[in-house]
C-alpha cells in the first residue's frame, strides 16, 4: 500500500489531528491491541523484544514522580505525532517518508530502502524498523487485515493514523456526495479506548471535536520546542 496517496476532491484540505486527554487515559492498553489487530503488526517474541526489536506503533509511556510513599505514576500514549514539520522527512534519500496533502506523515513501503535515517531523526521514537521478516504461526495469519500491507524485513514502519480507515471514510462520503463529517473516521486505537482519552478528526473543520478540544488550557505538544508542529495535542492530567 502506498500510504495516503489519495487526492481530496474538496476545496479545503483536511488536517487530520488527534487529542489525547491524559486525565482520562487509564493505561489499559486497549488501544495497543487495537492497533496491532488493525495494522498487521508482527509478533516479535521474547528474544527479539529483549534485543529492543519489538514493534509498537502506539505505546503507553509511564513516568514515576516523587519517592515512596508520595510516589505517582503517570501514563502517556505515544504514537507518531504526524508532525507538520517532520524531522523524519527531509533525511530520506528516496522520499519514502513524505507529506500528504491531508497533512499525514506517510511512509511508502515499496520505496523504503531501510537506511533508517528517518528513525534516527524522529525525536519521539515513533518509527520502528523490521529487522526480520514477520511470521505468524498458522493459522494466526488468517486474522491479517487485507486492507493493510504486511511489512517485510528491511522496512521502516510507524503509525499511519490508520490511513486505510481515512481513505474508506473519504470514499464513503464521496459516494454519498457529501463532505466527511466529524466522527466518520475513527482510527482503531480511538475506536477502542474505553475512557475516550483519544479523539480524532479534521483540525481544519473548526467545529470538529478535535479542533475544539485542542484549544483547551490543558493542551500541550510533545517536545514543542523542537518546532515539529505535531498533529497531536495532549491535554495535561490534573493534580489534586
Amino acid at each position: 500500500m502506498s500510504a495516503g496517496q489519495e487526492k481530496t476532491t474538496e476545496a479545503r484540505p483536511h488536517r487530520w489531528q488527534m487529542v489525547i486527554d491524559l486525565d482520562r487515559c487509564t493505561g489499559c492498553e486497549a488501544c495497543v491491541v487495537a492497533c496491532h489487530a488493525e495494522n498487521n503488526i508482527r509478533i516479535s517474541g521474547a528474544q527479539e523484544a529483549a534485543e529492543g526489536r519489538a514493534i509498537n506503533w502506539i505505546r503507553i509511556e509511564r513516568y514515576w514522580e516523587g519517592e515512596y510513599p508520595d510516589v505517582k505514576a503517570k501514563f502517556m500514549p505515544v504514537l507518531c505525532q504526524q508532525c507538520a514539520d517532520a524531522p523524519c522527512e527531509p533525511v530520506c534519500p528516496v522520499y519514502a517518508s513524505y507529506h500528504t496533502p491531508d497533512g499525514l506523515n506517510a511512509q511508502v513501503y515499496n520505496r523504503c530502502i531501510g537506511v533508517r535515517y528517518c528513525g534516527n531523526n524522529c525525536p519521539y521514537t515513533a518509527r520502528q524498523f523490521n529487522w526480520f521478516d514477520p511470521h505468524w504461526d498458522p493459522p494466526l495469519q488468517e486474522q491479517l487485515n487485507p486492507d493493510v500491507t504486511v511489512r517485510q524485513n528491511g522496512i521502516m514502519e510507524k503509525c499511519t493514523f490508520c490511513v486505510q480507515r481515512i481513505r474508506q471514510g473519504k470514499e464513503q462520503a464521496e459516494r454519498e456526495g457529501r463532505p466527511v463529517r466529524d466522527g466518520d473516521i475513527t482510527p482503531a486505537c480511538v475506536q477502542s479506548c474505553p475512557s475516550t482519552a483519544l479523539v480524532f478528526g479534521d483540525g481544519n473543520d473548526p467545529d470538529s471535536q478535535v479542533a475544539q478540544m485542542s484549544k483547551s488550557r490543558r493542551g500541550f505538544h510533545l517536545l514543542e520546542s523542537l518546532g515539529t508542529h505535531p498533529a497531536i495535542t495532549y491535554l495535561k492530567r490534573l493534580d489534586e
Binding site: G52, M76, Y124, R217, F220, S225, K236
Partner: peptide, 13 residues
C-alpha cells in the same frame, strides 16, 4: 532514546 523523558519537558500552554 526509548527511555527519553518526554513528559518532563511538557509545557502546558
Amino acid at each position: 532514546k526509548a527511555g527519553t523523558d518526554l513528559l518532563s519537558i511538557e509545557k502546558p500552554r
